[in-house]
Design a binder for these strands. Structure first.
Lengths: 187, 187
DNA sequence: GTCTATATTGTGATAGAC
DNA sequence: GTCTATCACAATATAGAC
């Protein structure tokens, strides 16, 4: 049951953000009453912090899978963008931590900490991938791997936000293709 | 007075988003009581729609100024990024329409319309600038001007979101420099 | 674990006096 | 234009029965 609550809360965060959903919304989605939610997660801070932590953990596992399946940096970066595209393709859902990141000034510290952890892990992983790609001469080396990692992450998070705001938008996958085509060395 | 209300509401939207602030918050900021706000803006939808419309109008004027002051595409694109940097530099404020774009599923139609208008205007302007830059051989021509415009806007909006979520982030200006260095043709 | 009932506070919005 | 008073409702959270 606790997991079904987390699933419902995750979806609500992705669609409406921290202050945009209530315990009653969660209760309706899982089919129990509002006070029963409190039995599983005492406070909203705790609930959303758990949502963010689980999301980050799951994301981390997907990063491991990418490294296992894809050997080279360009393919890894494309697979990374596909993670964002999958999320976005489901009803234009936002990245949990992208949404929460935007609302950071309204969040309890407990949640803010989880959000920042998500971004640090992602920036670290991307930095390593870009760095390897540059060493293998598969990625242009004009800019530091840190800068490239940050730019790539920003573009993907931004693609989801802009994609929600305007119907003409192409989504994270297309943005990634445009970006990577400038960075990948031709062979 | 109506304008002071708009100023306060704009700041609150940038910090907390649509569902993250109340009429009472606005009232406290401008120093009058809650019902007096309703006198100037009957509903919250109307208030935030006006905030977004004024923001878009003001932004449009700044685009005109950039075109007047900067003759070439690269300089125009750098000046464009500086607009985002200015906003972000003030207490890590988000772009009004970036914040609202993230929360689009919780917005009244009236507001959604204004948000989409902001993005369409910006994408149109950027597309024209990239297109001119490519014609003048100042911008690489591997990708369509539409794709480049969308990528650039996404990266800047994303830079504000990510920059809020993680303290190590460098902000829109730095992201823009990394991106443009890949796109501008060396002379 | 789930429920009903309730406390407490906050919300957008209105009525009507000044 | 601003105020006090108030409405109707929704929010997070708790107490205590089953």
């Amino acid at each position: 049951m606790a997991e079904r609550v987390l699933d419902a809360a995750e979806g609500l965060v992705q669609q409406h953000g921290y202050s945009g959903f209530s315990y009653d919304d969660v209760a309706r989605l899982v089919g129990i009453k509002k006070p029963s939610i409190h039995h599983h997660f005492a406070t909203k801070s705790e609930l959303v912090a758990c949502v963010a932590r689980r999301y980050t953990t799951r994301f981390g596992k997907q990063l491991d899978e990418i490294e296992a399946k894809q050997a080279e940096a360009p393919a890894r970066l494309m697979a990374y963008a596909a993670l964002f595209e999958q999320t976005f393709a489901k009803d234009r859902s936002l990245c949990v931590c992208g949404m929460l990141g935007a609302q950071v000034q309204s969040l309890p510290d407990e949640v803010t900490h989880e959000v920042s952890s998500f971004f640090r892990i992602n920036l670290g992983w991307l930095t390593r991938v870009f760095s390897e790609g540059q060493r293998a001469k598969l990625i242009r080396s004009g800019r530091s791997s840190q800068s490239l990692a940050e730019m790539y992450l920003c573009a993907l998070e931004g693609a989801m936000v802009v994609g929600r705001g305007v119907s003409s938008s192409r989504g994270p996958k297309q943005i990634s293709q445009t970006l990577l085509s400038q960075l990948i060395v031709d062979r």
